[in-house]
Amino acid sequence: MYKLHIDKVTFAYGSPPSAPVLADIDLSIGSDEFVAVVGRSGSGKTSLLSLAAGFLKPTAGRVHIDGRTVEGPSAERAVVFQDDALFPWLTARQNVGFALKLRGVPKPERDRRVNELLAHVDLAASGDKAIWELSGGMRQRVGIARALAADPEFLLMDEPLGALDALTRERMQEFLLHLWQDSGAGVLLITHGIEEALFLATRVVVLAPDPGRVVADIAVDFGRRFLRGDTSRAIKSDPAFVATRERLRDLIELQDFEV
């Protein structure tokens, strides 16, 4: 099992560094885990994900995978972006096949794998469409399939469901759980939704702002219950779920009055 370790990381933007946006973060994610990070806007969630992805370098501390220090982005840590960041000059199919093309995977093999992935995200019929012909939810699924094609150890997702309506969002949550189960990749999910974090994750991490720091790290298992067959409505109205949700909300709103 792999371990992605954000090891006592402090981070500040700019040079010379301004006030740190993340202070002394210590967070470790196993490749069998689904870790959701919640926190107020500006608490440093995206910065945290960018550090894990290797887009940013820690000001102090380091990020490593099984002892290897992360020096930059790599396909072992595929990223799903909040505003999809798809390539509009490629079709949906070509977007999904991008990582395979970079590796020089021969076309027949690539096509086979891309078809599998498109079917997996329920887009088998839309593969040859241009990106701008797809709906927001379809685009997010293309983005997820594109990341999965890299066959990553870790899937880093920044609010992948942020732009979706409530119903689509619920379906996509269930989809994400199956995906996590099937892909065998560890997941780091950034989200605004407390309920979403609670439903999906095996661990919920709460980030407090100014500077960003971990104020809670709670193990939960509602997602696993869904995968064992419980319905999401039953789970989300379960008293244990509701109680934990309220506790998390208190934790986050507490930060409002602290400043």
């Binding site: 992805a53 290797g54 982005p73 396909a75 595929a78 990223v79 960041a85 594109r146 990341a147 890299a150």
Partner: peptide, 15 residues
């Protein structure tokens, strides 16, 4: 060129 797209390609393994 969008920074996100550059980052996306880099995290998919682009040289």
């Amino acid at each position: 060129v969008s920074r996100d797209r550059l980052n996306a390609a880099r995290s998919l393994g682009a040289t």
